[in-house]
Each structure stands twice: as structure tokens, then as C-alpha cells.
Design a protein around this nucleic acid. Structure first.
Lengths: 147, 147
DNA sequence: CGTTGTTAGTTACAAACTCAACTGTTAACA
DNA sequence: TGTTAACAGTTGAGTTTGTAACTAACAACG
């Protein structure tokens, strides 16, 4: 049974997806890490606020599917670096609105440009149809068990 | 720039790939974790040995692109649970051959069946052509910068 | 031989993640 | 009202990972 087991690990989707995700995140990770000392959770929160504007940690959680403790810690770091401000809701003081500062928006714009370039370079390996197909299929997988 | 920023996070490949990878690993992870208390690194090492047979940690590393410390720790745990044996090379005593025990092969076969079923279920969302295309494109991405 | 470099694999320590329990606040309803 | 449940977000303890330094064994070349 040692040699010639026929299971194809390289085609097992969870494995293949992880390999592709890791490989394709590497170079971008280098940028947000080296340039801003950020973690993955932190650029994600930054991007959510940059793209969608002022929102609560809860909302970031439901959009990104990140666990609330990750978000809490990412928000704390971004606040400490003055990339975002926190403001309590006057009517419901459990709720806190998060919003990027000028510095936060600058960092976001900078990284957004890097991300767009990087995505273009990744996508350049494929034809337009292939790229579109890939995104479509990935969205289907990302969408959940019945996506 | 708060509202209506037009960068599309859901279509940024590294992000999308990570979401898809996480989502599609979840249910399988549950199995190897609950059934054998394994981590991702551990089932990967188990599968490499199950599929390709006796080999060294070095070889697992070059096949899987996992870092050698991860492999070292995964091997230590699998050895401790008697899922594999280690045997020093007589000519070069830096080298150690790893091989699954009977228990290891059993666990591998069990998980291989689960993986195959799971992959079938994941793939069932797509047409045969789509599934093939997805794998092809992912392999291209996983292959590295010039893949 | 002996020094220097390389390789296989391990260990140490810090950073990051997970899970569960916690604080503080609002809602529900007897 | 008073008690209980639900909710937003935080904290802490234990686990896993990442980075770099380490050990042990071999190789190369004077």
C-alpha cells in the first residue's frame, strides 16, 4: 500500500485551495506587513472601513466572517495607531461606530492601489473568461454549504 | 470616500481565495480534528506518507511546501500517537525515513475516504467542465509567481 | 587530518489564534 | 419594577504558528 496509492492530494479541493490562497497572499502580505506592520485581520478591517465607510465591529464581522475577538483586537491596534476612531452610539451604548481617520484613509488608499495592481498581475495569467470563471466558482465555494 | 468606494473586496483574489479555502476546509477539518485530534499539518503529513509511502521529512517539505518546523512538530505528534515510525538512514545519519504504522494506515484510509466523499460533494456544485477548469486555474495559482 | 560550509532536523521564544468566560448595556415580560 | 435573557464587545488561558538560532552529521578542500 506504500507506493501507488491513487488518492490525488493535489486535486483535493480544500488542499488545493489552501495552497493557492497561501501562495497568492504571500506577496501582498509582504506589503502590508513591511509597510504598515499590519496583520491580515488588520488590513481586512481597514479595507472594510475604507470601502463601506463607518460601521460597527458587528457589521464587519457579518460581512467578513471573521470572529469577533479577531476584529476586537484588530480594531484596538488600528485605533492605537490612529488609523480609526471609535464613537459610541448615544442611544445604545453597547454599539460603537468605527471610522477611518485621515491617516487610515491614506493607508487604505495606498494598500488599495497595491491590491488592485497585485490582483491585475495575478489575473494576467488567465484569459478574461478564465478569470471571470475562477471568481464565479470561488464565490460559489465561499458562499457556504449551499452556495 | 466613505460611501461608494469602488474597490471590490469580494473579487480581490487573495481575499476570495482565503474565504473559499476556509469555508471549504471547515467540514473536513471537523472530521480529522474530532475523530483523531489532528491538526492541519498532521493530516497533511499523514496523507503524504499514505499516498507516496516511506519518505523523509525533507521530501514531505518539498512536496507540500510546508515549513520544516511544522513538519517536525507534526511528525513528532504522529510518532507519539504511533501513527508512524522513524528510522535513521545507516549511511547518512542526519536522514530519517518516516513510514506509517498499521494504525497510521488505518487512519489514513479512513480520512482518505472522508476526503474523497467530501471532495465529491464540493464538486457537485459544478459541472464537470467547471470543476476541471477550477482545478486547473487553482493549480496555476498554487504553482507560484510564474506558474 | 582540520577547518569551513552545508544539510536534516529540532528547539526556544515571541507573536497570533481559539475558545470560553467575562463586563456592561438593553430588551422582555412577569 | 425586578428578574432573566440577549447582545456588543473585551479579556485571559491555553494552543499553534513563525522566525531564528541551534545540534548533529556529512562534505570539500587546503
Amino acid at each position: 500500500m506504500s507506493i501507488a496509492d491513487d488518492f490525488d492530494l493535489q486535486n483535493f479541493l480544500p488542499y488545493l485551495l489552501n495552497q493557492a490562497a497561501e501562495e497568492s497572499s504571500l506577496a501582498f502580505q509582504q506589503v502590508y506587513k513591511d509597510r504598515y506592520g499590519m496583520l491580515r485581520t488588520e488590513w481586512r478591517v481597514l479595507f472594510h472601513l475604507g470601502i463601506y465607510g463607518r460601521m460597527t465591529a458587528k457589521e464587519i464581522g457579518s460581512r467578513s466572517k471573521m470572529h469577533k475577538t479577531k476584529i476586537s483586537r484588530a480594531v484596538a491596534k488600528l485605533a492605537q495607531r490612529r488609523f480609526l476612531t471609535r464613537e459610541r452610539d448615544a442611544n445604545d451604548r453597547r454599539v460603537e461606530y468605527l471610522e477611518l481617520t485621515t491617516a487610515g484613509r491614506q493607508a487604505y488608499r495606498d494598500l488599495r492601489a497595491v491590491a488592485a495592481d497585485y490582483d491585475t498581475r495575478l489575473t494576467a495569467r488567465f484569459s478574461a473568461q478564465e478569470a471571470e470563471m475562477l471568481r464565479k466558482l470561488l464565490r460559489k465555494l465561499a458562499g457556504g454549504a449551499d452556495g
